[in-house]
C-alpha cells in the first residue's frame, strides 16, 4: 500500500479508514526520522492491510499539536478512528510491526 502524505485536509478521510492506520510524525531535518523512513517504505510494500500516513510536523503544526507530538519521529497506530498506540523514537522494523498488533 502506498504511503500517503497526510495533511489537515485529508486527515479525516484517513482516520475513517477501515484499515489499520500507522501515522509517522516526522521532519526532513530529523536524523532518526530519516532512519525510520526506509523501514516504513518496506512495511508499506509488504502490508496491504495497513495505511501508512506521513505527517510533516513543519507543515502540519496543528495535527502535531492535536496529537501532542513533542518528539519526532512519533508513531501512532489507529484502529477504527481510535488511537491504540502512540510512542516517540526511532525503532527497528520488528518493533514497528509489533506496534501494529496493539
Amino acid at each position: 500500500m502506498a504511503i500517503i502524505h497526510v495533511t489537515a485536509t485529508n486527515f479525516a478521510e484517513i482516520k475513517a479508514s477501515e484499515k489499520t492506520v500507522l501515522l509517522d510524525f516526522y521532519a526532513d531535518w530529523c536524523g532518526p526520522c530519516r532512519m525510520v523512513a526506509p523501514i516504513l517504505e518496506d512495511i508499506a510494500s509488504e502490508r496491504e492491510d495497513i495505511i501508512i500516513g506521513k505527517i510533516n510536523v513543519d507543515d502540519e503544526g496543528s495535527l502535531a499539536h492535536q496529537f501532542g507530538v513533542v518528539s519526532i519521529p512519533t508513531l501512532v497506530v489507529m484502529k477504527n478512528g481510535e488511537i491504540v498506540h502512540q510512542s516517540a523514537g526511532a525503532r527497528p522494523k520488528a518493533q514497528i510491526l509489533k506496534l501494529l498488533e496493539s
Partner: peptide, 9 residues
C-alpha cells in the same frame, strides 16, 4: 536500524 549510529542523530 539504519547506518550511521549516533552520528546519524
Amino acid at each position: 536500524m539504519s547506518a550511521g549510529g549516533q552520528m546519524a542523530l
